[in-house]
Design a protein around this nucleic acid. Structure first.
Lengths: 125, 125
DNA sequence: TATATAAGATTACAAGTGTAATCAATATTA
DNA sequence: TAATATTGATTACACTTGTAATCTTATATA
């Protein structure tokens, strides 16, 4: 099932987020959904959809005259793939060293920390 | 002090890691240090150093005939910048949602979890 | 001193990305 | 039906990145 996730460029991610939120969607619906989130011309958005199709990250339904698009990978699958390569590149491959830095930097609120503790406890118990 | 960190491409990160490990270093020393870590021709490594200089991420000392190179930003500074943009792009900007995923996926060992708990406790207390 | 070598400077070149515009076909409207 | 508008297809173009090779200049060596 989980074929290697192709690379998704930064601007392409914006499109994917919209499709994960809800799909299938027409190009126009994607354009509308991006109002206020990104400042792209409709043609640009169309190009991004085309590239995602070519990469097989997005599927297309051509039954109707106006095509509809949908993701071919789950969001968490893509997130995991990105996270893995990110951690490898930047933090020697381990979540822990990233987290250490965040904790030391006080980048987590007291509330976050409590929630994390609870999740950890639930897991470990 | 902390000017906006310029973008550092993936292969450039390999070079930076070497320089953070120890610097200043000559190009040849960087080449040696990369033995077994990356499979690049010396010319390629030189190009990467040049680009990093142009981006002002790496400084150069030209006193001697053979230049020496050194980082202009601290590693943790660059890590934080990357982490921030990564989390924004992929996880809606919060460390917590990334961590939630990792915990749910059992991507942390029992030992990791314990260490994290201890760090959290030390912080919160 | 002539020559080989090493270092730095310049150039190369394709793929991917950001950001569209133009062209073509089809449907809608006057 | 002719003109217009919409959608999809094709093309554009500069910048970044990966991955070097070539050119130039200054040492080291014969």
């Amino acid at each position: 099932m989980a074929k290697e996730v192709p690379n998704i460029a930064e601007s392409e991610w914006e499109i994917m987020k919209i499709l994960w939120e809800n799909s299938p969607r027409t190009a126009n619906e994607v354009v509308s959904a991006l109002q206020g989130k990104a400042d792209w011309k409709p043609k640009t958005i169309r190009t991004l959809l085309d590239r995602l199709m070519k990469k097989k990250v997005v599927g297309v339904n051509k039954e109707q005259r106006v095509y509809t698009f949908y993701p071919l990978y789950a969001e968490d699958e893509c997130q995991r793939a990105e996270a893995k390569s990110f951690l490898k590149r930047i933090y020697g491959g381990t979540m822990k060293s990233m987290l250490v830095q965040f904790i030391e930097d006080d980048a987590l609120s007291e509330k976050d920390m409590n929630e994390i503790r609870q999740m950890l406890d639930k897991k470990s118990k």
